[in-house]
Amino acid sequence: MAYIQLPEGAVGMRGLMAFRPHLAPHLGAFTEGILCIEEGLTKAEREIIGMFVSKLNDCQLCEGVHGAVAACYLADNEALIEQIKEDYENAPISDKLKALLSIAASVQKGGKHVSESQISKARELGATDIEIHDTVIIAATFCFFNRYIDGMGIAAIEDPEVFRQRGKMIAEGLGYAPKK
C-alpha cells in the first residue's frame, strides 16, 4: 500500500500523477523528450536503458513497463529483453549499446562511477556526444522515477499482461505526455 493517500483507481505512476496533477504535464513532457525520439538512439534502445537501470534499482514496476515498451518496438521480442536483463554482454545487441549500458550501470551506482575508459570505449564503437548524453540522462531519470515510485511505496504489479497492455499503449502512440 502506498505511504500516502492517493486517488483511488489509478495504479502505478498514474496514482502519483493524479495526486499532484499540475506536475504531470512537466514530468510527462520530460519523459517523452528523452524516450520518444529517434535521433541518435532508437526508441527501443532508450527504453532498454530505462528498463535496465530500473532492474538494477530493483524497481519492478518500471522494469516491467519499460521492458514491455521496448519489446513492442522490437516486434514483441520479449526473449531478447529477458536476455538483456540477465546478461546484456552476451545478448544479441550492438556493441555500441553494450558500451552504453555499461555507462548506464555506472550512473545507477552514482555519477562519479562513470569512467573515462567507459566513455572512450563507447566512442570507439561510434557513440556520439548526444548518444552519450542521452544515455546518462535516461539512466539518471530512471534513478529518479524508480526512487519516486518505491519511495512512495507504490505497489508492484504481478500480472505481466498489465505491463504488455500498458507497454503497447505507450509504444503505439500514447507516449508519456498527458494527452488533451
Binding site: G110, G111, V114, H133, A140, C143, R147, G151
Partner: peptide, 19 residues
C-alpha cells in the same frame, strides 16, 4: 520530500555522470 530527493538523485548523476 520524496520527489525532491529523487529529483536530486537525477541532477547529481547528470552533473557527475557527464563530468
Amino acid at each position: 520530500t520524496v520527489l525532491i530527493a529523487a529529483l536530486f538523485c537525477l541532477y547529481n548523476r547528470y552533473v557527475d555522470g557527464l563530468a
